[in-house]
Simulated scan of single mutants.
Amino acid sequence: MPDTPLTDQQLTDIEQRARAATSGPWEPYPDYGPYFHANTSGEYLRGVGDINFGVGEQAEADETFVRHARQDVDALLAYVARLQQQRKFLLDQLAKRDAESGRGDKALREFLTDPDTVPAEACGKCKQPFDDADARFDGKAQKAGTPYCRRCVDLCHDNEIADHRCVICA
């Protein structure tokens, strides 16, 4: 299973294929043969076609997967659309908050943005690119082999709360 997010074009392609496919649910329809599957929920039979999954446990799992694919793809596309709307809303709220206060929730904003835009060599907390030239105690250079910049480590160690826990201290 790929671990990279879908592009807008990939989502559009999936939506177009889903709209073009026979609506579901797809069920076995033995009147047309032992392997014929169709949507029998409407007034007319809408066929998907002959699908011979074979026999055995794996064949049953494959048949179940295919029979539910029609509904599952629609449900997943709707869920992705909802998540995209929520993401847009949160980014808009962060932008308003940034405009009002002059400072924003940078880490949250960067988490919600496209992960392809975060540099590979960046701080694991603030996501800013490491800058080896900035070796101040609170600079942007990488702190001694940790996945964090010197600034985030410095901010963490400045905390005076006794039960303080964060991604650096944990």
Rank of each mutant, 00 (worst) to 15 (best):
D13F: 10
F53C: 05
A95M: 15
C169W: 02
Y35C: 05
P119C: 11
V55K: 13
T146Q: 03
I14Q: 07
D105Q: 13
D138I: 06
E15C: 02
F65T: 05
A18S: 12
K143L: 10
A59G: 13
F111H: 08
G145I: 05
R150F: 01
L83W: 10
F130A: 05
C152W: 00
P30R: 10
P5I: 02
Q93W: 07
A107G: 02
G54C: 05
Q93I: 03
P147D: 05
D163K: 08
L11I: 11
P34M: 11
A133W: 12
P28N: 14
I168F: 04
Q71A: 09
E27P: 05
E121P: 01
A78T: 13
R103T: 14
D132A: 10
V73N: 02
L155M: 15
A120G: 06
F89G: 06
A38N: 08
F137A: 09
A59K: 04
Q128C: 05
A21K: 01
D158E: 14
N39T: 15
I51P: 01
Q58A: 14
A170M: 13
E160V: 09
Q142V: 07
G139D: 03
A20Q: 14
Q85M: 10
A162L: 09
A135F: 07
C149Y: 00
D72A: 09
R109S: 09
V55D: 13
A95N: 12
Q71H: 12
Q71E: 13
D105R: 03
L91S: 02
L6E: 03
P30E: 13
T40M: 12
L108W: 14
P2C: 12
L77H: 04
N52E: 05
M1L: 15
R150M: 00
Y44P: 00
G24H: 00
K96F: 09
K106M: 10
P119V: 15
R67I: 07
I14R: 03
K140L: 10
N159H: 11
D72C: 03
C166W: 01
I161V: 10
F137L: 09
E63D: 14
H157S: 14
D3E: 10
